[in-house]
Design a protein around this nucleic acid. Structure first.
Lengths: 236, 236
DNA sequence: TTATCTTTTGTACGATAGTACAAATCACAT
DNA sequence: ATGTGATTTGTACTATCGTACAAAAGATAA
């Protein structure tokens, strides 16, 4: 039966299910899917192993539910930000706004799970690297629409760059985004402590700045298979 | 005891050990460390599970040996290419040569294992995502020197960009590189078949082009902490 | 209260994991 | 051919995996 909100409180639902989801999300995101056992998750959530089976049936089902929880709100948030970005008149500013609309939801707070969050993005990065089948299916059918929308929007503000190259460069963006969340400590280490890889605001600014520049690079697709130095034509 | 090269041939050593290494490399790179069992590896190599234990003692030892096999030659190759790149006079061309020196060895042929190769790079990407401890240790102590050398070289050809930002952008480069090798089919899919994500030459050109542009982006570190207009209002 | 659901617990089962180890086999110097 | 060390095989042990399931506990409506 569908549960109905009971008399006393509407929000005071038992949090065991949520605790399991949160613990699983964290553990999967940091250790991968196969390295984490159901018992690990249960322990981290303060629950009984059997409780995981009860709520999610299988370990795959648990992962599936994590995705279901986040995908909708995250894509919604991205769509809203994208729509706002498309209303920017200046092409240069619009491009930056579009990129920001793509990047920001991926980084912002895992505390309010309203949509996106760094933890879920890191989870996606890890699942992608592991070639997880469950994740692969969900991603292709959930994120491709959004990805196409962003690619098209970027293409519109960079009409002289072939769509194929936009695809490549947005692919690089996602890779950079993922990697920034997977190993932020590498940034701190290589910068000898001068930068903090875990600083989401800094990561966003750096990523947006670098990515916008990469999108604005001249196309190489059709023109020059042999690239001589026409490279001085660096317009901005 | 140490094996000595025998009379007949020097190179005709039994290939079981090599076969195991190759099979493990492939399986780890595509499925992650924990998802692959020693028995899987043995079967793929046409060997007996016990044979793996004999040659590498533990599963970790096998992974360790894979890294040992590749790290030396790969860093050597990168150093050579970097040294050559640094001799390029024109700053713009030099930057591109440096980036290329970093990227090319990561992509080129897994058939001759002389140094680098896409398969090993993909392996590193996956291990990094999984937070593998063995890999983490090796990487920090093996690749950081090379990374610093590249960062310094890039910094020299872009003196006006703070080193911290070079670090960020080269981090993005590595992330893009990794991701291109992890999910090349995504490029094919999003480009609706117009690009082939598995085409190493194309990936290299696209990555170099995009990365050089991102390095040449103006620095944002000191100048403008508040960008003109925040495209999206962040409540948070 | 009692009756009925939902949730949690405890435990158990079969499968598979990594690894150890003795026996069998192979390669080669003598 | 024979002995010796290197390699391969087969098997077994223990630990842990995902999952099932019955019983206990908790909650809700009458």
């Amino acid at each position: 039966m569908v549960r109905k909100p009971t008399s006393k409180e509407t929000a005071r639902k038992p949090n065991m299910r949520e605790a399991i989801l949160a613990a699983a999300e964290e553990l999967f995101a940091t250790n991968g899917f196969n390295a984490v056992s159901v018992r690990d998750i249960a322990q981290a959530a303060g629950a009984n192993p059997g409780s995981v089976t009860y709520h999610f049936k299988t370990k795959d089902g648990l992962l599936l539910e994590i995705y279901r929880r986040h995908c909708g709100p995250m894509n919604l948030r991205r769509s809203e930000l994208l729509a706002a970005a498309k209303r920017v008149r200046d092409l240069q500013d619009r491009l930056e706004a579009i990129v920001r609309a793509y990047v920001v939801p991926a980084f912002t707070s895992g505390s309010d799970l309203a949509g996106g969050g760094a933890r879920f993005t890191r989870l996606r990065a890890v699942m992608s690297a592991e070639g997880n089948e469950v994740a692969r299916r969900i991603i292709a059918q959930t994120f491709d629409d959004t990805s196409h929308a962003f690619i098209d929007a970027i293409h519109e503000s960079l009409p002289h760059v072939p769509r194929t190259e936009i695809v490549w460069r947005s692919h690089f963006l996602l890779g950079a985004l993922y990697y920034s969340l997977v190993t932020p400590e590498r940034v701190s280490r290589l910068s000898r402590g001068e930068a903090d890889g875990s600083d989401a605001a800094a990561a966003i600014e750096q990523l947006v700045q670098a990515t916008v520049a990469s999108f604005q690079a001249p196309a190489l697709d059709q023109a020059a298979p042999a690239r001589r130095r026409a490279a001085a034509s660096n317009k901005t």
